[in-house]
Computed example of a mutant assay.
Amino acid sequence: MSFLGFRRYPTPIVKPLWPFAAASLITFTLISKAQDAAIRSDAYKNDPRNPYREQLAREDASAHH
């Protein structure tokens, strides 16, 4: 019997949404790896629009020593 529209057991919310959470995690990870690879590529490493240009230059300088 329902009381004001509430059922005895709550409707599951998390259980049917686990594929979307897993897909979101996979998508976030893959896009992050693609962005990191693009930022570190030779074509964009010295581009003035690259916000990580100085950081990459410091990493390259420390890696050569």
Rank of each mutant, 00 (worst) to 15 (best):
S2L: 03
S2G: 01
F3C: 15
F3R: 05
L4E: 15
G5E: 11
G5W: 11
G5D: 04
G5M: 00
R7I: 03
R7N: 14
R7F: 10
Y9M: 12
Y9W: 11
Y9F: 01
P10C: 02
P10K: 00
T11K: 05
P12K: 03
P12H: 05
I13R: 02
I13M: 15
V14H: 14
V14D: 09
K15W: 08
W18G: 12
W18C: 09
F20D: 06
F20E: 12
A21F: 12
A23D: 07
S24H: 05
S24N: 06
I26M: 12
I26W: 09
I26P: 02
F28C: 05
T29E: 02
L30C: 12
L30Q: 07
S32R: 00
S32K: 01
K33P: 00
A34C: 03
A34T: 01
Q35E: 11
Q35S: 08
I39N: 07
I39Y: 14
S41Q: 01
S41D: 10
D42L: 05
D42N: 13
D42T: 12
D42R: 15
D42Q: 08
A43D: 04
Y44N: 13
K45C: 02
K45R: 00
D47S: 03
P48V: 01
P48N: 06
P51S: 05
P51A: 13
P51G: 09
Y52Q: 13
R53L: 05
E54G: 11
E54F: 05
Q55K: 12
A57N: 09
A57R: 05
A57G: 03
D60Q: 11
D60L: 03
A61Y: 04
A61W: 09
A61L: 15
A61V: 09
A61D: 11
S62A: 13
A63N: 00
A63V: 06
H64R: 12
